[in-house]
Design a protein around this nucleic acid. Structure first.
Lengths: 229, 229
DNA sequence: GGAACTGACAAGCCCATGGCTCTCATCAAC
DNA sequence: GTTGATGAGAGCCATGGGCTTGTCAGTTCC
């Protein structure tokens, strides 16, 4: 008595096979598909159907696991933010014990894979454009940047303990802004300057922030002075 | 024999009065409406109907004056870019004859009205998110940033003629990136630092780029040395 | 000064696409 | 085999962009 399933138009349909996955696997797949969509086609091209097609699932599944497409985008922002933080963290750990090396590594890692990636910037600009209108995105943004600055501030004060609190704060803000600006521009238009030049610029800014630069407008040499009075 | 105009449903319609405007006025009105839409509702909320409602015209007029909504967004980018450049140019002119004052004014004007404006950032992030996918936007972006850097480079070399070409180039890139990063962050989240602090940071970076800073990690005083050896 | 003309303009239709829901098939655990 | 959650897929309503049609405001020519 098993009759073939028939839709409203009377056409027999064969439902596709599928495998059951855990909620975590599905969520992660949807998040990664969203990031790829944002990167490749921008916010406008990031639709439920596009995301689900990339994730290889049907469109109904998005609503099943997330509270709509906006919630998925928010989850994607969180995930991407965590991965960037992890990449920076790893760079710091691989840099050894000298806080100066750690700071340099933390800054320069922004101009190497996986952070130096135009696709990642496309994802990020999509989020920036949502900060204004979406309080949830704004909250995550504030948190991500606060953590970044706090980390830089801690490294600065580890290197130069006598640096005043306020100066460390402003230095961390400046370095973050410089890195952001360089990263933005090199991802948007890689022909203007190279990743190596970007790394040199942030290293120079770092040294200047540490107050270990002597004005020699012509040569640009570094003055090594590891121990301070 | 004048019968009332009747639409397909047989309902008599009274066409709204309108006034004829010149093409320039209409184009400008549409461009400004687009900028406001981008600022308030992001790219997703910037539809033909939304733009035209803001401009106070019917939706058909957009196609009449522009080659679709994409072309209008592109024109808006051009217009906004020109206005920002004009604001910076004006700041330079009002700064007097000293190129040092001009450079400072050019940098610090980014943290005053009309450039320090979250709405403007929203517009700008919308454009950034389009650079990847739209070659027209990418070309305009490259041009705008090239001009900005060229201006900074010229000012730097006017202040310190003996500065090598490459160092001036990198300094201009760094200053642009710093300004962009600070401007981005202060517009996204004004609670992190103030406009005055941003101006102080760019002034400090400017002085450091000019090589007129002496390492005094603790105090942060300026060393005035207008004449160089 | 009025009639014909030109083109800016409004209104609304058409089709595509978007997000979401609803129904029901399918799989895995018991 | 039973069962219940996972998942597919069509459908629904809203919205979007572009186009077509027809009107009305200035202009021109007599």
């Amino acid at each position: 008595m098993t009759e073939k399933p028939v839709n409203r138009k009377g056409i027999s349909k064969a439902r596709a096979r599928f495998i059951r996955e855990s909620a975590d696997v599905r969520r992660q797949a949807l998040i990664e598909a969203t990031a790829r969509c944002l990167a490749e086609k921008g916010v406008a091209g990031t639709s439920v159907r596009a995301i689900c097609a990339r994730a290889g699932v049907s469109s109904g599944l998005l609503t099943h696991y997330f509270d709509g497409v906006d919630a998925l985008i928010l989850a994607t922002y969180e995930d991407v933010g965590v991965r960037v933080s992890a990449a920076l963290e790893q760079a710091v750990e691989e840099a050894g014990d000298d806080p100066r090396d750690q700071l340099r590594a933390c800054l320069q890692a922004n101009f190497r894979a996986p952070i130096l990636d135009p696709d990642l910037l496309a994802t990020w600009t999509a989020f920036w454009s949502l900060v204004r209108t979406d309080p949830g995105i704004a909250a995550i943004h504030a948190d991500v940047y606060r953590r970044t600055r706090a980390q830089l501030e801690a490294l600065l004060r580890a290197i130069v303990p006598e640096m005043p609190q306020d100066r460390a704060r402003l230095a961390a803000i400046s370095l973050t802004a410089l890195v952001d600006g360089l990263w933005l521009e090199i991802c948007l238009d890689p022909t203007t300057f190279s990743a190596e030049e970007a790394q040199a610029m942030v290293e120079r800014a770092m040294m200047l922030a540490l107050g270990q630069w002597r004005g020699d407008a012509g040569r640009g040499d570094w003055i090594d002075q590891s121990d301070k009075p």
